[in-house]
Simulated scan of single mutants.
Amino acid sequence: MSETAEIADAEAAGVAATESNKAARKRRRREPPPDPVPLPGLVDAHTHLAACGGRDPESVRAILDHAEQVGVGQVITVADDMIDARWAVEAAAWDHRAFAAVALHPTHAGELDDDAKAELERMLADPRVVAVGETGLDHYWPSRSDDCAAPDVQAEAFRWHIDLAKRTGKPLMIHNREADADLLDILAAEGAPETVIMHCFSGDRNVAQECVDRGYVLSFAGTVSFANAAELRVAAEIVPDEQVLVETDAPFLTPHPYRGQPNQSYCLPYTARALAEVRGVDDAAMARILGANARRVYRLPLR
């Protein structure tokens, strides 16, 4: 074989290998992570069962059976819009391990008309609906999507949800993306309800300390395990035991080393163990703290 032919064959093999690697990465993104070693006592403080495929009693049961096998006994399934809110309430009725949180996500704040307000108020009367959420502010999407509510519309809807949480006596579950100062200012001006949960906390140590000082609960997702999240781990370290929760935000934010793969509530022990490492405590002790906090904050029954 000539030198030119050998080079051509080598180049072709390299292209094939590259294509194979790309295909392998793509295939891996579709594969669910393996089951973690069980860690009993956990509660998934924030998930999206419908987005995980839980659209009927059988699929919800399968998701929660899988979670329970690794120690995740209860979940809070959360709505983004009115359609999801109805699904969340139904899921909470289908399975005793599921509870719902309902609200309009800030990106959908423009949909908060009188009918939506009335329906959300009716939903919050259901004892299986344990929080108002997720609501808050999102300053990331308005400049990137024509469908996203403008910041002033989000702020108005946020104020309404704050009042709803105070009137119903249920926790307020916060979505905050790139809006730290404005969000904290609105909470201070309106007067926060008794319990505020900072869902998927993503702030730095200073924002974390401000939230802690105000008595808010900080919920950490798989992001706390990411390689580029050193500042978030500092924030997770300074939160007192009684003010920390753990969540999946499934199907998003799958923890390391499975980042980018499909997430579900059964993956929660990975993040709980990451928190235990950050906070320098035993895994089992961390699970007891996290589970007890979730049951207290959401007022969940043991069964």
Rank of each mutant, 00 (worst) to 15 (best):
S2W: 06
I7V: 12
I7K: 13
A8L: 14
A10M: 10
E11A: 15
V15D: 11
A16D: 10
A16T: 13
A16S: 13
A16L: 15
A17G: 10
T18G: 15
K22P: 06
R27G: 04
E31W: 02
E31M: 08
P38F: 00
P40A: 05
G41E: 08
G41L: 12
A45H: 05
T47W: 01
G53C: 10
R55S: 12
D56G: 12
A62G: 07
D65Q: 10
H66G: 09
Q69F: 10
G71L: 09
V72F: 08
G73L: 03
V75S: 14
I76T: 01
V78D: 03
A79E: 00
I83M: 07
A88W: 04
E90L: 02
A93F: 14
W94I: 13
W94Q: 15
A100R: 04
V102R: 01
V102M: 13
V102N: 09
A103F: 03
P106F: 00
P106H: 02
A109C: 05
G110K: 00
L112F: 05
D114T: 08
D115P: 11
A116Q: 06
A116V: 07
A118T: 10
L120W: 09
M123V: 02
A125I: 03
D126W: 08
D126T: 08
D126V: 01
P127Q: 15
V130H: 00
V130A: 02
V130K: 01
G133T: 01
E134C: 12
H139R: 14
W141E: 11
P142Y: 00
P142G: 05
S143G: 13
R144F: 01
S145P: 08
D147P: 04
C148N: 03
A150F: 09
D152K: 15
V153T: 11
Q154L: 03
A157K: 01
A157G: 07
F158N: 05
F158A: 07
W160T: 00
W160Q: 06
H161A: 06
I162C: 04
A165V: 00
T168K: 10
G169E: 04
R177H: 14
D180G: 00
D185E: 14
D185R: 13
D185I: 01
D185M: 09
A189Y: 02
A192M: 14
E194L: 03
T195C: 06
T195H: 05
H199Y: 09
C200Y: 01
G203K: 13
D204E: 00
R205V: 11
N206C: 11
Q209E: 12
E210W: 15
R214E: 05
Y216C: 03
S219M: 10
F220S: 02
F220P: 01
G222E: 03
V224A: 04
V224M: 03
S225W: 05
S225L: 07
F226P: 02
A227S: 12
A230Q: 15
E231G: 01
E231S: 08
E231W: 12
E231Q: 11
V234S: 10
A235L: 05
A236P: 02
D241F: 07
D241Y: 07
E242G: 14
E247M: 05
P251I: 04
F252W: 15
F252L: 12
P257E: 00
Y258L: 08
Y258K: 02
G260N: 12
Q261A: 04
Q261W: 11
P262E: 01
S265T: 12
P269S: 09
L275N: 01
L275H: 00
D282Q: 09
A284V: 04
A285I: 04
A292K: 04
L300D: 03
L302M: 11
L302V: 07
R303F: 04
